[in-house]
Write a protein that binds this DNA or RNA. Sequence first.
DNA 1: CTGCATGCAAAAAATTTGCATGAGG
DNA 2: CCTCATGCAAATTTTTTGCATGCAG
Lengths: 159, 159
Amino acid sequence: MPETRDDWEERLKEYLSANDLRLTRQRHLIAEAFFETDGHPNIDELYLRVRRRAPHIGQATVYRTLRLLVDSGLAASSRFGGAATRYEASDEDSHHDHMICTECGSITEFNNEAIERLQEEVARKHGFAMHSHKMELYGLCRKCSEREPGSPEPPKEAR
Amino acid sequence: MPETRDDWEERLKEYLSANDLRLTRQRHLIAEAFFETDGHPNIDELYLRVRRRAPHIGQATVYRTLRLLVDSGLAASSRFGGAATRYEASDEDSHHDHMICTECGSITEFNNEAIERLQEEVARKHGFAMHSHKMELYGLCRKCSEREPGSPEPPKEAR
DNA sequence: CTGCATGCAAAAAATTTGCATGAGG
DNA sequence: CCTCATGCAAATTTTTTGCATGCAG
């Protein structure tokens, strides 16, 4: 079972050579920064992080490389709420979904085999050839819901 | 069981007066255009549609009104893939999720009680107070998957 | 060498906001 | 009347693209 976060270097090389793409210093740096970042960074965060090591790198290259990582299957992208796209290492063996706190913005991962199976079943029933899915639960995380017990009127907007 | 698509006028008035907001000609027109549109229009589509009846209306007003409809619970917004936000009438009695074809972009709705229940269970287990959720299956719709039987390499990018 | 990749800045696309004017209650 | 809402355009934010130059293979 390939663990993307450990395995990325080889997997990236494979993908690149299989597609006649080049392993550039930038691509390596960006991928490295990406895979050593836990959580769900967005382009800006990655850009800043990479910049520390390679000050003259272009933001466009970060965008381009992250798209490449997504195309290769090494990364997955999501847009929670209305914010900028966030990325995470995609580990095909253990897909997971997200719970997003609309109060503090924290993201919790979970996975549930039963739901996965039901999704495939639904797709099949509709003649739909599912190749991926995305599921997000919005609400208050434990901390925030404890802080505001019977929130009489949840914040009108959580942007 | 309130059916939003029939009931929107009264519900909108209630929300507005409850929040000291005004029922303006524009808001009415935009809501009307929205609720008589099937599918999942985006701001542009609604703007064009409303413009036919009220040529001098501003795009910003459409944005502002759709946000209002979402805040009021009369509408729900989603962003499929990387495209602009799309809106739909939200009928609290029958939540549904989406299957998006990455080939032709068609959107199919479905709902599955079992999945809903499991979602709530997962949330509860994590101490998470879920107030809404979103689920999207990506893949090829029946038509598209019939057209490309054993697609040897799915289109690298479906933007 | 040769062509893909990069950096930079400009362009796009989507959405928000400031402000003077208009109109709902 | 007194605000809140609108229209318009300008500003933001996020992402993409064009192009000359660089560098991987």
